[in-house]
């Protein structure tokens, strides 16, 4: 049970619900127990367990989502329906309306002290938490867990076409949040 808290935090960060996260820890440890023979020690036990947990989280999303739908592309959108959210960034000629590099200086460098790094991580987490549920789920499955787009779309309960729109939207929102809330050095 020594890895249970780390697994719990992992699950909670993905599903955002304490009860679901507890159930996922139980499922993960049960699955690990059943196939303990397949653990060959090439990675640490924690890494192996986290790998199992990733699949459990994806299963959780698959079970809880509705039938894939194109409507989902607009479900979490605060922008005007039918309007490309990227319109906020560009004028009608396709030129920037805002400075694309403002506030993103830290993306080009790696903060050398741990306090700055921790602060940067806090801001990234804050901005990810600001994403609407569906965008955050899809973004996490694709960008953090590294699923390909069709798999991430299926796990998040959206069509592949919607996933492309939603991923663009989530990246744009994350970018704007980082710019507005500042990771300026």
């Amino acid at each position: 049970m020594q890895h249970a808290d780390a697994l719990y935090r992992f699950a909670l960060s993905r599903v955002g619900d304490h009860h679901a996260a507890e159930d996922l820890v139980q499922d993960c440890l049960t699955a690990a127990w059943r196939r303990i023979d397949s653990f060959d020690g090439r990675s640490s036990l924690g890494t192996w367990l986290t790998g199992i947990m990733k699949f459990k989280v994806i299963d959780h999303f698959r079970k809880s989502k509705r039938t894939p739908t194109d409507q989902a592309a607009h479900a979490d959108d605060e922008d005007e329906p039918g309007r490309d959210p990227v319109d906020r960034l560009f004028n009608s000629q396709g030129a920037w309306k805002v400075d694309p590099n403002h506030g993103l200086e830290m993306l080009a460098t790696s903060p050398d002290d741990s306090a700055s790094r921790n602060e940067l991580m806090e801001w990234v987490r804050f901005c990810m938490d600001e994403l609407p549920d569906r965008l955050r789920t899809l973004f996490t499955l694709r960008e953090v867990d590294g699923l390909d787009v069709p798999s991430a779309a299926s796990a998040a309960g959206v069509t592949k076409g919607s996933a492309a729109v939603l991923l663009t939207r989530s990246r744009q929102r994350l970018r704007l949040c980082l710019q507005e809330h500042g990771i300026r050095s």
Binding site: W96, P100, A108, M121, F139
Partner: peptide, 23 residues
């Protein structure tokens, strides 16, 4: 103005991964 865009997209992915590990 756009020259840093590809690096920024990559860096956001790296940072999001690091932030979730950090969490």
């Amino acid at each position: 103005l756009c020259r840093r865009l590809p690096g920024q997209f990559e860096a956001m992915r790296t940072l999001a991964r690091a932030a979730c590990e950090h969490e």
